[in-house]
């Protein structure tokens, strides 16, 4: 069962993502772990191996870009695919995310379908 870390400071967004992913057949189904902030993610990452990280960009304290940079710099997690979700339509943040090594970018508003599709694609590419 793939293990997915969802990082967002909004509980509604986390629930939305969890609901969309947990029951998805193409994810066979997935186990979703929620982190309520960038710091929370930093706390969870050393304890476990994840198959996919889905993160918001605009979060207080540690933002999604910083989390991404941390993941890419870490021995253990550098290969984990990272999917970035943000309300930020800013081209600038998107470019920064991609240049820091984000694997995919989804802009809000999200729909469960494209979220599932994006997640399944990244999980598949990692296995392949």
């Amino acid at each position: 069962m793939p293990k997915i870390l969802v990082v967002d400071d909004s509980s509604s967004v986390r629930s939305f993502v969890r609901d969309a992913l947990e029951e998805a057949a193409e994810l066979r189904p997935a186990e979703v772990v929620e982190a309520t902030s960038g710091f929370d993610a930093l706390r969870l990452l050393p304890r476990d191996q994840y198959d996919l990280v889905i993160t918001d960009i605009n979060m207080p304290d540690i933002n999604g870009l910083e989390l991404l940079a941390f993941i890419r710099a870490s021995e253990r997690h550098r290969a984990v695919p990272v999917l970035i979700i943000s309300t930020q339509s800013s081209e600038r943040d998107r470019e920064r995310g991609l240049s820091l090594g984000a694997n995919a970018f989804l802009a809000k508003p999200l729909d469960p379908h494209s979220l599932r599709e994006g997640a399944a694609r990244l999980l598949h590419s990692q296995r392949a």
Binding site: D9, S10, S12, V13, F16, N58, P60, S86, T87, K108, P109, L110
Partner: peptide, 15 residues
Amino acid sequence: FRAVHTLKGLAGLFG
């Protein structure tokens, strides 16, 4: 600002 910003994101998500 942060409150409204998050609200905007949620509103988009939930239509």
